[in-house]
Amino acid sequence: MVTLRNFVGSYFDSNRLTTNDYSWKPKDQLPQSAGEYPKEEGEQLSDTTTVTNYSRNFPMLLHDGGDDPMDTIRCVACQICERECPPQCIYIEKAYDENGKYIKSPAKFDIDVSVCMSCQICVEVCPFDAIVMNSQFELSTPDRFGGLLLRRDDLLKSNDYYHQIHPEEAAARDQKMADEKAAKEAKKKAAAEAAKKKAEEKAKAEAEAKALEEAGEKGKEEDSGKEEAS
């Protein structure tokens, strides 16, 4: 009886279906149809049936756009994520210029996605908002070891792409970064002002001291003048 009701009901009521519940999604964001899978080779869309814009899969590195992503890469190879990563799947080497100076970017940044467990700890510990979660999940490859090791250039994604897949989160993160930057600048400004004030005070104090000194000298001179006069 219940089975029959469910069977008949499944034709009219989406809640009786075992498929995904899209009732909360705006109409225009509904996936057109699930039957197109697989899509064209290499193409990956964020609206493939099961991916919502909250899901997370594997990490990616952010850059702020530009022709050469390495110019605007946010990662400074501080290696905090490498240390904190629970399954130890991140491998970082710092980059050095020809003089052997550390140039605050990674020379190597590898993530072994066969080990990664998508826990998002690296995203949380990163102080530079340089690493975030991607929702790309079609990673199948015929090469078991090399193919599942994502290199730095595979991981680099632009901030625009991040906005596309996780709009709310990305906006919040940008806001946070802007706030931090503003706070930093305000701090800098305050520090500069304080320094200026300090310098002014110092100058004032110096001037006063000088004046005092001068007065003293004058007094002395006067004294000496008096002495001389006497």
Binding site: E84, C85, P86, M117, C119, Q120, I121, E124, V125
Partner: peptide, 12 residues
């Protein structure tokens, strides 16, 4: 590992 890093393992 650190305290926080065991959190994802408790999921499992």
């Amino acid at each position: 590992m650190s305290y926080l890093a065991s959190m994802p393992f408790t999921d499992r």
